[in-house]
């Protein structure tokens, strides 16, 4: 009990968190780094980012309650072994589609070119493509790239921290 009071973070993040293995694999090949970058952008729109990073492995002590699994199941089809097919069908019907799925269904590409649409309103690429890079460890301007995972760092100090604790990991 005492422990809980002195360490609020224990209370806050009791859920286990593992590096998504797919992400790790993706990061190792530079071709897949683009994929990983897209996945990360997608994650910026997630509501329960922490929850969704959890991989519900069987041999790992599952820290999610059933409710969580139902929720996560909408996006990942993992950890649903115990559910009957009927229950799954029910959930599939109830699960709202994402906005991007709805956009896809709306078939906006088929609109005549002069009709404004969600897709055409996107601002488009920047005129100058120079991307600035910030050190993932400390936030300073970063001139170096990790050869293993492609993440940026600014100095040998930050490189060491990166190698020791973060390389190939997505979530601390």
């Amino acid at each position: 009990m005492d422990d809980d009071v002195s360490n609020p973070m224990r209370r806050m993040s009791s859920r286990t968190r593992k590096v998504a293995s797919k992400m790790t694999a993706a990061l190792q090949s530079s071709d897949n780094r683009t994929q990983a970058a897209l996945a990360r952008l997608e994650a910026l729109e997630n509501d329960n980012a922490g929850l969704e990073m959890v991989e519900a492995n069987d041999d790992d002590e599952a820290s999610l309650d059933d409710d969580d699994q139902v929720y996560i199941q909408k996006k990942h089809s993992k950890g649903t072994k115990r559910k009957t097919r009927q229950a799954k069908a029910l959930e599939a019907r109830k699960a709202p589609r994402t906005f991007l799925e709805l956009v896809h269904e709306a078939n906006l590409d088929s609109l005549p070119p002069h009709v404004p649409s969600y897709l055409k309103a996107a601002v488009g690429p920047p005129s100058s493509t120079s991307r600035r890079h910030f050190c993932t460890v400390c936030g300073s301007a970063a001139n170096y790239t990790c050869v293993r995972c492609g993440v940026r760092f600014c100095s040998s100090r930050c490189q060491n921290i990166h190698n020791d604790t973060r390389c190939l990991k997505f979530v601390a």
């Binding site: 806050m12 993040s13 968190r17 936030g139 973060r166 601390a172």
Partner: peptide, 17 residues
């Protein structure tokens, strides 16, 4: 969410917060 990432990466895990 971006701030969550930065804080979680650099200080304490706040991904659920």
């Amino acid at each position: 969410n971006y701030l969550k990432e930065l804080v979680s990466y650099r200080s304490v895990n706040v991904m659920d917060e």
